[in-house]
Amino acid sequence: MRDVSSVTRSTPVATRPRPKTPSSAAGPLKRYRSSVGRKVVMAVTGAILFLFVITHMLGDLKAFLGREDFNHYSYWLRSVGAPALPHRVFLSSLEAGLVVAVILHIWAAVSLARQARRARPVRYAARPKVHENGYATYVMRYGGVVILLFVIWHLLDLTFGAVNPKGENATPYDKVIADFDPARWYITLFYIVAVILVGLHLRHGLFSAVQTLGWGRQGRYPAIRLVADVTAALVVLGFVAVPVGVTIGVLK
């Protein structure tokens, strides 16, 4: 006979979940700890980082205007506001802002990824089919980790010069030329792979930010996706141009 008593209620009334602190009672900043609130933090910090990526790319492309232009631009970044502002104050303030944005972006990502992991303790036996854009979740999470590692390498390389063949005292242009020498093809390859991951991150990130900030509507989605795709492609091309330009000898 079938054992009916073995069918138990899974959630006794007494242990039913209640929100710890309702958002309505939480402080103006603590509200953003809800799952949607953390996505808003992710979207806003992501937008700040996106603006940085665009200006960084435009700055890089100055390499094609020649050694003098590139080095002068680099010097200008460090002397903005002189003599009113001491050397590097403007740039360091921007960098401090970017560090805060990166930390908040990663905090939101890690806590949401952990929440997602907890939310499905038993996985599907049949490999879950991707019906729409489900792979984006993996591109963002694992790709994001690779991008972080790349940024650390990139700072050690071209900002601090610690892992650059020319060391820290060379001019920015010389450091770039030495970096992507054909003999160091593996470094160039690493940069290209990282930049493609940044592009894929932006492709979903731009769309997702628009959706998270509440501007997504059925009629607008094709345009939003198109803008996100084209922007991501331009960012990849813009960043790949300099390393490839050095490797094939257009820049020397």
Binding site: P17, R18, P19, K20, P22, S23, S34, S35, V36, R38, K39, L112, Q115, A116, R118, A119, R120, V130, H131, E132, N133, G134, A136, T137, M140, H204, F207, S208, Q211, T212, G216
Partner: peptide, 17 residues
């Protein structure tokens, strides 16, 4: 949204699945 989080659901990543 508070109740949704308290129930142990994950957050949205806008994939459209």
């Amino acid at each position: 949204v508070d109740q949704m989080d308290a129930e142990g659901f994950g957050g949205c990543t806008n994939t459209g699945e």
